[in-house]
Amino acid sequence: PVYLSVKADNSMFIGNDPVTDETMITALNALTEGKKDTTIFFRADKTVDYETLMKVMDTLHQAGYLKIGLVG
């Protein structure tokens, strides 16, 4: 499974590897070998604001990742 996490300080990680807004999709493409039907499990600290969550989800959708599971 692929886990994308947003921490309380808005830092992002794919698994244990830090990513930025600019590198997130490139890292996901490498990890999933470009398979856009891969489910991305998205988790965020409860203090992360809604705007940040939606920005990340919008970026995922624009890149073609449509299977996003929200996890606690």
Results as ranks from 00 to 15, higher is better:
R43K: 11
T23C: 07
V2I: 14
G69S: 15
K7R: 11
T32Y: 04
V6Y: 08
A44I: 13
D49G: 13
E22V: 10
G34I: 03
G34A: 04
T20Q: 04
F13H: 05
K35N: 14
D9Y: 07
T59P: 01
F42V: 15
F41L: 13
E51C: 14
R43T: 12
T20I: 03
P18C: 07
I14S: 01
S5M: 12
K55L: 08
F41R: 05
L66R: 10
I68K: 02
I68H: 03
I25C: 03
E33T: 08
T47A: 13
F42M: 15
E22K: 11
I25K: 02
L28E: 00
A63W: 05
F13W: 15
I14P: 00
S5H: 14
T52F: 15
N10W: 06
L31C: 06
G69H: 15
Q62D: 10
G69D: 15
V19Q: 03
I68G: 03
H61I: 13
K36S: 05
K36Q: 06
N10M: 13
L70D: 05
N29D: 13
V71R: 05
Y3R: 04
P1V: 14
D58P: 01
A63Y: 07
T23Y: 06
D37T: 07
G34K: 04
P1E: 09
K67R: 12
E33K: 14
V56K: 04
A63V: 03
L70H: 08
E33F: 12
I14C: 03
P18I: 10
I40D: 00
I14W: 04
S11F: 07
L60D: 00
A44V: 14
T20R: 04
D45H: 08
M12D: 00
N16S: 11
G64W: 01
I68Y: 04
A63K: 02
G34H: 07
G34P: 02
V48Q: 03
R43G: 05
T32V: 07
I68R: 02
K7P: 02
E22Y: 08
Y65Q: 00
M24V: 08
T47Q: 13
G69C: 15
D45T: 04
E51Y: 11
E33M: 14
V71H: 08
L28T: 01
S11T: 13
V71T: 08
G72Q: 12
T59I: 15
T26H: 13
L31N: 03
T52D: 05
V71G: 07
K36C: 04
V2S: 01
T52C: 06
E33W: 07
D49R: 13
Y3I: 13
K7W: 11
K67N: 14
A8H: 09
T20L: 03
L66A: 06
I68P: 01
I14R: 01
L4K: 00
P1S: 10
L66F: 15
G69W: 15
N16E: 12
N16I: 08
F42H: 00
A30Y: 10
M24L: 15
V56W: 07
V19G: 01
D17W: 13
M12H: 02
N16T: 10
D9Q: 06
N29Q: 08
E33Q: 14
L70N: 06
V2N: 01
G69Q: 15
A63L: 04
E51D: 10
F41A: 03
E51N: 12
A8R: 06
V6H: 02
F13T: 07
V56A: 04
T39E: 11
D17L: 14
A44M: 10
V48W: 03
P1C: 13
E22M: 09
P18N: 06
M54Q: 13
F41G: 02
D17F: 13
Y50H: 12
T32C: 07
E51Q: 13
P18Q: 12
K46L: 09
D21G: 12
Q62F: 07
N10T: 07
L60I: 06
E51H: 12
L53G: 01
L70C: 13
M24H: 01
T20M: 03
E33V: 07
K7T: 11
V2D: 01
M12C: 04
Y50E: 10
D45I: 03
S5P: 01
M12R: 03
T23K: 05
E51T: 11
V2E: 01
M54D: 05
T32D: 02
K55M: 08
Y3E: 06
G64S: 02
T52V: 14
T20V: 03
E22R: 08
G72F: 10
D21Q: 15
K36W: 05
L53H: 03
P1T: 11
N29W: 07
R43W: 15
P1G: 11
G69A: 15
N29S: 06
E33A: 12
G64D: 02
I14L: 14
T32R: 02
I68C: 04
K46T: 11
K36D: 03
L66W: 15
K35C: 07
L53N: 02
V56I: 15
F42L: 15
S5Y: 15
A30I: 13
A27F: 13
V2F: 04
N29P: 01
M54R: 14
D9M: 05
A63H: 09
D9K: 08
T23S: 10
T23V: 04
G15R: 03
M54E: 07
H61P: 00
F41N: 05
V19F: 03
A27Q: 11
T47M: 12
F41P: 00
I14T: 01
D58K: 14
D58H: 14
T47L: 12
T47S: 14
D45S: 06
Y3C: 13
V48R: 02
A27H: 14
F42S: 00
A27T: 14
T59F: 09
L60A: 02
H61G: 06
S5T: 15
A8G: 11
T38K: 06
T32L: 09
K46W: 10
Y50S: 09
D45C: 07
N16A: 11
L53S: 03
T47C: 14
L66T: 14
G64M: 02
V56T: 05
D21S: 14
P18M: 11
Y65W: 05
M54N: 08
V19L: 03
Y65V: 01
G64P: 00
D45Y: 05
Y65A: 00
K67P: 04
M12T: 03
L70S: 06
T20A: 04
Q62T: 10
I14M: 05
F42G: 00
V2T: 02
A27V: 15
G72M: 12
I25P: 02
L28N: 00
M12Q: 02
A27S: 09
T52K: 10
T59N: 11
V56S: 02
K55P: 02
G15L: 04
V71Y: 07
M57R: 07
D49Y: 05
A8D: 08
K55H: 10
L66Q: 10
T38V: 14
D9H: 08
I40W: 01
D17Q: 14
F13R: 05
E33H: 14
T38S: 06
S5E: 12
T39I: 15
T47N: 14
T39P: 14
D58Y: 13
R43I: 15
N10R: 12
L4N: 00
V6N: 01
A8L: 06
Y50I: 13
K46N: 11
V6T: 02
A30N: 11
M57V: 10
K7D: 07
T26Q: 13
S5W: 15
E22W: 05
E51G: 11
Y65C: 01
T47F: 12
L4Y: 01
K55V: 05
V71P: 08
D17N: 14
T23A: 06
I40G: 01
T32P: 01
T47Y: 12
E33P: 02
T52P: 02
N16R: 10
L28F: 02
E33G: 15
G34S: 06
D58V: 12
E51K: 13
H61A: 12
